[in-house]
Structures are given as C-alpha cells and as structure tokens.
Design a protein around this nucleic acid. Sequence first.
DNA 1: CGGTATCCGCAAAGATACTG
DNA 2: CAGTATCTTTGCGGATACCG
Lengths: 227, 227
Amino acid sequence: MSSPDTMARSYAQLCGIATALDVVGDRWTLLVLRDLLLGPLRFGDLAEGLPGIGTNTLTARLKHLEALDVVHRRLLPLPDRGTVYELTDYGRELEPILMALGRWGTRSMGRLPRDVASRSRWLVAAMLAFHDDSQRIAQPTTWELRLSDGPFTVRAEDSTLTVAAGAPDHADLILTTDDETLHQLLTHRLTPAEAVTTGAVTLDGDISGLSRLIGLFTFPALEASAT
Amino acid sequence: MSSPDTMARSYAQLCGIATALDVVGDRWTLLVLRDLLLGPLRFGDLAEGLPGIGTNTLTARLKHLEALDVVHRRLLPLPDRGTVYELTDYGRELEPILMALGRWGTRSMGRLPRDVASRSRWLVAAMLAFHDDSQRIAQPTTWELRLSDGPFTVRAEDSTLTVAAGAPDHADLILTTDDETLHQLLTHRLTPAEAVTTGAVTLDGDISGLSRLIGLFTFPALEASAT
DNA sequence: CGGTATCCGCAAAGATACTG
DNA sequence: CAGTATCTTTGCGGATACCG
C-alpha cells in the first residue's frame, strides 16, 4: 500500500521543483495555504474564502496536505468543539515563496475578469508581501484592522512585520474601513486625512498612526489591461 | 470555438497569488519554465524533458505563456531555421521563486515513486538552487559539465553563479560524468579523488578545480521516505 | 523534424444533495 | 458545521493523423 492516491498523478521526476508541485501543485492547493498563512481556519471558513471550490475538492486537498506534513488538523478546546487546519513548520516555510509569487502575479492583475471576488484577508496578506523590510520602526506598534472578514492584527517591531487574523490584546490604533479604501491608502491614491474626513475610515487612536502604518509598505500601482 | 481564451478557468480573485496561478498554475506550466531557465529550447526538446506531457498540452501551455508575456517565441537565424522558446524578462523573474520552491520540495523527494525520470538539466538547475552565495570566489572560473543532456556552462564570479545550457568558449575545467556521480559529489558521498580514480569522472584540467566547484554548493542529504 | 488538430478514455474538478 | 456521496462536466494523457 504505497501511500494512497495522494501521489496518483505525480510528475515522477527527480527534481525538487517537480516534487514541490507533487505536493502543492494541484489546483486550489496554494490558495488554501495562502489563506492559512494568517492563522488556523475551520473547514467552512476555508471554503468561504475559496469561491468556486467544491467541498469534496477541499476535503481532498486538506487530506493530501495533511498526509504530506504541510497542514495539521487540530481539535479546538472545549468551548468551541471544532476542528481547525493550520500550517505545520514545513508548510510555513512556503510563506516567503507565496509572497514572492504574489508580488510577481500582481503585475498581471490588470488582466483579471470583470467579476472578481475580493476578500480583505487577501489584501492583508498583500500587506505582508509588500512590506518594506528595509525600514526599522522606532518603537513596536500594533494596529487592529477591522475589515469585512473580521479583525486583523498588524504588528511592526524593528524591521519585521507580523500579520494575523484576530484582534490583538492591545492595539495602538484601531481602524475600521473597507478593502477598497485601504487599498487606496496603501497605493497613495487617498491620504489619511481625506479618508478620515469622508468617513471612509474610522479611527480609534491618532491619525499619525495611520500614516506610519501606510509608510511601512510599497504597493505597486496596478497597470491597466493590455490585451 | 474555444479561441485562445487563456483565462478560461481563472480563479477570478483580487489577489496577486491567485493571479500568478492564473498565469503559471496549470499543470506542467512551471516545469516548462524550469526547463527554460537554462536557456532557450525547441518544442521537441521541451517535450523530451517533460515525460508524460502531450504535445497538445505543451502547445496550449506555450500559447498561454506567450500571450501573457512570460515566454517569447523566437525564430532562429538561417543555419538552423527553427523556432525556440525563451523566457521574457517577466518570466525570468520567476527564477528565484522556482529555486526556492525547488529547495522546499527537495525535502519531500524521499516520497517519490520508484520509476522516476531523471535529466541532467534538472540537476544543473539544482546547482543554481543550492549555490551558497555567501561565498566570494577569488578569481572568476568557468566549468564545462558534459552530462547526458549535453554540455552545460557553470561560471562563478564574485558571489554570483550563472548556469546555462551549452558549452562555454573557454573553460578552466571540463568534466565529463553522469548525473548520479555528480550528485554524489555534490552531497559529499564521493570525493573528487575517488571519482577520478574509479573513472566515474573524466577531467580535462586540474582536479583542484573540481573540489572548488563542489565547495560552492550546500546540497542537502536526501531523507528516506517515511510514509 | 516542428508543430497542430482530432478523437478517445480516464480521472479530476464543479455542483449539489445529503448525513453525522 | 463538517464533511461524504453522487452526478455531471471538463481537462488531461495518449495515440494518431496531418501540414510546413
């Protein structure tokens, strides 16, 4: 019984890249891992974040990833009584690769179809991708972003940025907004002052903290479609 | 019907990673790009390096990649009268991502099936992936590797390593060997002296050059399969 | 030889209904 | 909520026939 069907369609090449694709190359797989980068998720939350995936396909991907030690299935303690999926150490090593792939793919986003799905968690992941780690921040700062997917924690310390789903215990600044406004702020098409004045952003804390947050990133301007 | 609708199965997500996968996420696509990393290839050479791919699938992938400016189709000058496919600048930006993915996947190579295909070009690509760029080499050196796929050029200058298919104009050392022997050398399961003595490697130049070549890399030992 | 086009069988993926 | 079962659709691999 050489491993179940998890290797059914292996490329069978003596090559690290081909082997990596045997593990994470199937359709949807890398998007599952992308969504798990911000923290553990339940089956239903994963499915909700992957519009178009069938529950059977999601089940198959999770089983495959679990068998290959990329994802771990964990039972939550009593109050919740649920199951969550989270990255293993091996799976977490994909983070810089996924971020680099996301930066690369951003250039092609102008070609996206008209009816595009959007999730604030993807925008938050993009913040991780476009964080400018050549900057060192003077003192550690925590932001809470309240977006449509729920609260997220962004923390800057020295030159590292950590991002996770969920609210922090303490935030230096809480901001409530929508994806489009946040993206406009990050691409400098909207100033913090404008955003607050129009009510597109609601702050609990000082507006300078919003400016400092935005300054941590270097988002590219999106190009229009060419084809 | 079915005109080149290259976005037929787009994830349609406002996300750089999802967009990248719209471009290079289809089966075989990243392996096509891997093989093009070492230099332009003809259709037939690509097909030969991707055992199992159908010629129709390869055609579809190349058309897709060409339409999205990842690969460029170029006609060779007269003596050859052929067509080659080569990476565009945009496509070449995938190199560090593919190398990182290959390093990541190497850990899972113990699970590969029994009948694995092997190509020396993949081993040469792995040399690029496992090059230790913390080293600076005293004086620029060029090696010619004569392997089953043909000759390859490896050049070290300062702390950069370049690798390409084809023989160099001048090589400081020419070595002829097989994939298995080269891999054993790179993983220190075989010493240069042993390899030369047994005839597994033939040198045209000084053996110290082989030691210096091997010293440029930090290949991991392959783990045995667990499940 | 360097592709392209077509048919065919299979396995994966999408959709949805259903169950613990 | 967390999946499983079932059915349909689509993509893929393989073979082959065709064109420059």
